[in-house]
Design a protein around this nucleic acid. Sequence first.
DNA 1: GCAAAAGTGTTGTAAGTACACCCATGG
DNA 2: CCATGGGTGTACTTACAACACTTTTGC
Lengths: 231, 231
Amino acid sequence: MELNYYTSEDKVLLAVDCIIFGFDKHHLKILLVKRNIEPEKGKWSLIGGFLKQDENLDEAAARVLETLTGLHDIYMEQLYAYSKIDRDPGNRTISVAYFALIDVASHQFEGVQLESAQWFDLEEAPKLIFDHDQMVVKAVSRLRRRALTMPIGFELLPEKFTMRQLQTLYESILDKKLDKRNFVNKINSLDILIKLDEKDMTVARKGAYLYTFDKEKYDRKVAEDGFSFKI
Amino acid sequence: MELNYYTSEDKVLLAVDCIIFGFDKHHLKILLVKRNIEPEKGKWSLIGGFLKQDENLDEAAARVLETLTGLHDIYMEQLYAYSKIDRDPGNRTISVAYFALIDVASHQFEGVQLESAQWFDLEEAPKLIFDHDQMVVKAVSRLRRRALTMPIGFELLPEKFTMRQLQTLYESILDKKLDKRNFVNKINSLDILIKLDEKDMTVARKGAYLYTFDKEKYDRKVAEDGFSFKI
DNA sequence: GCAAAAGTGTTGTAAGTACACCCATGG
DNA sequence: CCATGGGTGTACTTACAACACTTTTGC
């Protein structure tokens, strides 16, 4: 039974749109779809959907992501609410943007083949409908800030990765070259990776050591000391 | 004429709630109201209102603020969208929180007297309705981050202020003591204040020099060099 | 003349940045 | 044996942190 106060107030359509970042060992990518409903049918767009009565925004964003990719338990974060009156010519709609981080390689998701979804290099992405380009710009900037202060880069990498992959990822996110020795020193000084007795031999004759992120150790350090991740 | 696509989708009530920060030369404060509608009538709350069809969220937040305080052209920033299903027992409502910065002293606003609104020291604020406490926590953390990286502290101060007032403001925001000499050196090295030939004689026998924020100079520095404000 | 707040520099320490060579291996 | 990318340490520079005494003037 619902009480229904505020009966005289306007109601609106509330959408979520997801900026999905991926990394394919060389470039930072975003996942886009060809929109299959009017208006703007056939144009490139972020994936999105409408909030339902029985879910909160986080759940709606996760649902939208899972519907397209089949993936769940993905890192997602609310970005910003977009509310320009005529932002969607189809109807007055407010959209709350979310961004998600997934590892392109590890997850062979079916959805991307089935739907008309496609990965784009961030620099080569097409123009998007509505205010979606604006959302992407903000998402990139948020990702950059997060990557510098939280260990979220690992969400974009496979379980096991080389130092060079991690560095390339950071170079993609920050859009600048980093010094190899300084980067390794910095990462090692954080002391939150496990160096495995295993090498990736595909990457060089010599091979390159594989590492994994030690989440337990990281969580312990944060809880115990006032440890804070900083690149 | 409206097109009305998406006709089968659920609509929701969309509210804005404002965390209004002030500074009274000693303490960081927030402005709260005694709620005058059901549910939770009579309890302390952030000021809020519902989004109307003919305005975007920024406009709604500005309207809500002006309705209570009579103030306009106030620094406001969108914080986060809160969407827990039963967050408001009156009805399913999504709320987008905004925070605002105003100078308590310079603005003698009538609203605060008329409505049952009241300034509270941040530490002494009462428990608030719904998820408003959670909003305040996030707003404080956002304010802290902004204050360290953008010149928004001046929004909370009168046009003319002393170095000590600026330092006390930062100490309130960051909730820690700062070293007087280091603080002055840091601020002066930024080179964005104008030192006036005028002293505030109420604050000490000796008097204290007054300063103003040189917004033009700041904007120029940001545009020309890659200058970035950092405390 | 003294209480009360303003004003002012230096030195040590930690973090960041720049930089070049050897190693291991598959072909 | 050589081409390729992996792996490693040091010196310099810059930002941050700690710290104490003199000045002014109303009472």
